[in-house]
Amino acid sequence: MALYNLDLSGNKMSFQPNLSLYTKIIVFLAAIFLCFAVTPFLPIGFDVKRIIYIIGAGLCCYVIYDFLFVVKVTMIFDKNTRKVYQKIPGIYTKTLMDFEEVRIVNDTSYGTLMYTIGAKNNRFVKNYPISDNFSDSKKGIRKQEEFEATILEPLLEFIR
C-alpha cells in the first residue's frame, strides 16, 4: 500500500504509519513561501511584517520536526528476533516489545478511530500508532477497510 510504504520481505515487515502527513507538510511549505516571498512586497507596516516572519519561522520549525521525527518513523516487525522496532532513519532504532506482548488496540480517544500497538501488560500506558486516523465519513470508512485488508491482516498473520 503506497500510503503506508509497506515492505514485506522474508522475515521482516515494515511500514510507515504517518506518511499521510506529507500533504500537511506541503500545505505548510506553501504558507512558508507566502510568508517569506510575498510579505516583503506587501504595503504593510514593519511590525506586521515582523510578526508574519515569526509565524513563518515557527512553521519552518514545525515542518522540520514533522518531516524528521514524525513522518519518517518506521515500524519494523522482525521474525528472526521476534521483536517490534521503531526506527527513525539516521537517528535511532528503538526496541518496543516482543511479538508475544503485542496487542492491537482500537484507539478512539480523540473521536476518530486509530489502530495502535501496546504491550499486553501495560497497553494503556504507552501505545504506538500504526495507522492514520479514520473518520466516520465514507472516505474514512473506505480508508479503514483498505488499511485492515492490506496492513492489519498481514500484520496479524506475520506476528503469529
Results as ranks from 00 to 15, higher is better:
58 G>Y: 13
59 L>E: 05
132 D>E: 15
72 K>R: 03
2 A>Q: 15
71 V>G: 00
47 D>F: 13
155 L>V: 08
135 S>E: 06
100 E>W: 01
35 C>F: 06
59 L>C: 11
5 N>Y: 09
154 P>L: 01
70 V>I: 09
102 V>G: 10
130 I>P: 00
75 M>H: 14
149 A>N: 04
49 K>E: 08
68 L>E: 03
24 K>N: 15
17 P>A: 11
32 I>F: 11
5 N>W: 09
31 A>I: 15
67 F>W: 07
126 K>A: 08
88 I>P: 00
160 R>T: 14
140 G>N: 10
138 K>T: 12
34 L>Y: 02
27 V>Q: 12
75 M>Y: 10
97 M>I: 00
82 R>S: 08
134 F>K: 11
73 V>P: 03
21 L>N: 12
158 F>E: 08
57 A>Q: 03
47 D>K: 15
67 F>R: 03
14 S>W: 11
139 K>V: 07
100 E>N: 13
85 Y>D: 12
73 V>A: 10
35 C>N: 09
57 A>N: 09
47 D>W: 15
65 Y>V: 08
85 Y>F: 10
133 N>L: 15
80 N>F: 08
6 L>V: 02
117 I>T: 03
101 E>S: 09
143 K>W: 02
92 Y>S: 10
152 L>H: 00
148 E>T: 04
58 G>R: 12
79 K>F: 06
140 G>H: 06
116 T>A: 06
58 G>E: 09
70 V>A: 13
106 N>Q: 10
87 K>R: 07
104 I>K: 00
40 P>F: 07
31 A>P: 12
95 T>Y: 04
119 A>M: 02
99 F>A: 06
143 K>E: 15
103 R>Q: 08
153 E>W: 05
73 V>N: 09
56 G>M: 02
67 F>C: 09
52 I>C: 06
74 T>R: 05
43 P>S: 13
114 M>Q: 09
52 I>Q: 04
111 G>C: 11
18 N>Q: 11
93 T>N: 11
17 P>T: 02
97 M>Y: 01
112 T>K: 13
78 D>L: 10
32 I>W: 01
147 F>T: 00
6 L>G: 01
68 L>F: 04
84 V>C: 07
137 S>R: 03
60 C>A: 12
103 R>E: 12
110 Y>V: 10
125 V>E: 15
141 I>E: 14
15 F>D: 07
118 G>E: 08
28 F>D: 13
150 T>A: 12
153 E>D: 13
48 V>N: 03
119 A>S: 11
53 Y>N: 05
146 E>D: 09
113 L>T: 11
123 R>W: 15
70 V>P: 02
111 G>H: 11
56 G>N: 02
41 F>A: 11
6 L>S: 08
31 A>D: 06
43 P>E: 09
154 P>C: 01
34 L>T: 10
45 G>F: 01
109 S>E: 04
145 E>Q: 13
47 D>Y: 14
86 Q>E: 14
146 E>C: 06
90 G>F: 00
74 T>N: 05
110 Y>S: 14
130 I>A: 02
61 C>T: 14
130 I>N: 01
83 K>T: 03
35 C>L: 01
81 T>P: 01
134 F>C: 02
117 I>P: 01
70 V>H: 05
